[in-house]
């Protein structure tokens, strides 16, 4: 299926931004800057009012985006207006997916997402146990459904999840909520080791902030790195300092390049390549 191709040749850099943060027009520029900086897949957050899996940084991004008028329909317009040649994944919470259209199931949302060119979904409050209807809708419209594997996910739970996952698995590097950190947790290596028998690409997120982090994560065996809060921080700072959209976009592009290059260095340090 689709998204796996982004991980095929080299480690993928997967940035996240909340769509519409701090406003629609600037956000389009920021997402396009990430693509120029080397993004292989872009996760676009569709903001939900109760983001229970997010730390302060992304909570604030969600508030800014909602206050600027983001809605599910605006989000789909946003995706249509984006000029990027990178696969797009929508990250949101289940209630928005469930309510869209008829208000009684995930199918209309998935249909619309497919229509505007979204290739996959990440839904942090939807564990494998509740994912049946969404999985079926994704199959019907050819979308990947990405699951998050936590440091606490083992045994039967891991098996159940990996049976349903497609595109890539989102390996949560440490317990807790999203947010940039100064160091990278050892839990990452343990999680990657648990997943080593599965050939679905493994993208590690939660806490990655620098090119050096990305390098370490990839050299430990990850097929990609997911970076959200460190990029949202740049958007937030630019917004607070009233910097121009161009300046902020340049900083995002430079940060993206740093992270992508770190990931590439990590791949060259691996004892043996995982795939040919």
């Amino acid at each position: 299926m689709g998204l796996e191709r982004a991980f095929a040749d080299e480690p993928a850099f997967v940035p996240y931004l909340a769509a519409g943060d701090p406003n629609y027009e600037a956000s389009l520029e920021y997402v396009e800057a990430l693509a120029r900086g080397g993004a292989d897949v872009i996760e676009l957050g569709l903001p939900f009012s109760e983001p229970i899996a997010e730390g302060k940084t992304i909570q604030n991004a969600i508030v800014r985006s909602l206050e600027a008028g983001m809605t599910p329909d605006r989000f789909f317009e946003f995706v249509t207006d984006l000029d990027v040649d990178v696969p797009l994944v929508c990250m949101t919470y289940y209630n928005l997916i469930y309510q869209y259209g008829t208000g009684d199931g995930p199918r209309p949302f998935v249909e619309k997402a497919a229509e505007v060119g979204i290739e996959g979904l990440v839904v942090p409050d939807l564990p494998a146990e509740e994912a049946g209807p969404l999985r079926r809708a994704c199959d019907e419209f050819g979308l990947d459904l990405v699951f998050i594997v936590a440091p606490t996910t083992t045994g039967d739970r891991l098996e159940r999840m990996l049976e349903q996952v497609s595109g890539y698995v989102y390996v949560q590097a440490r317990l807790g909520v999203t947010g940039a950190r100064e160091d990278v947790d050892d839990a990452t290596e343990e999680s990657l080791a648990r997943l080593s028998d599965w050939d679905v690409p493994k993208a590690v997120g939660f806490g990655i902030k620098t090119g050096d982090h990305a390098e370490r994560i990839v050299s430990a065996g990850a097929d990609g790195v997911i970076v959200g809060s460190a990029l949202v921080d740049i958007v937030a700072e630019g917004h607070e300092n009233r910097d121009s959209v161009e300046e902020v976009a340049d900083r995002l592009e430079a940060k993206a390049r740093e992270l992508k290059e770190g990931a590439l260095r990590g791949a060259s340090e691996r004892p043996q390549p995982e795939r040919t």
């Binding site: 146990e129 998050i148 996910t153 739970r157």
Partner: peptide, 14 residues
Amino acid sequence: GGQYVPEALMPAIE
């Protein structure tokens, strides 16, 4: 009802 929570919480819920 059901269990709509982040994966990190599921082992604790179980």
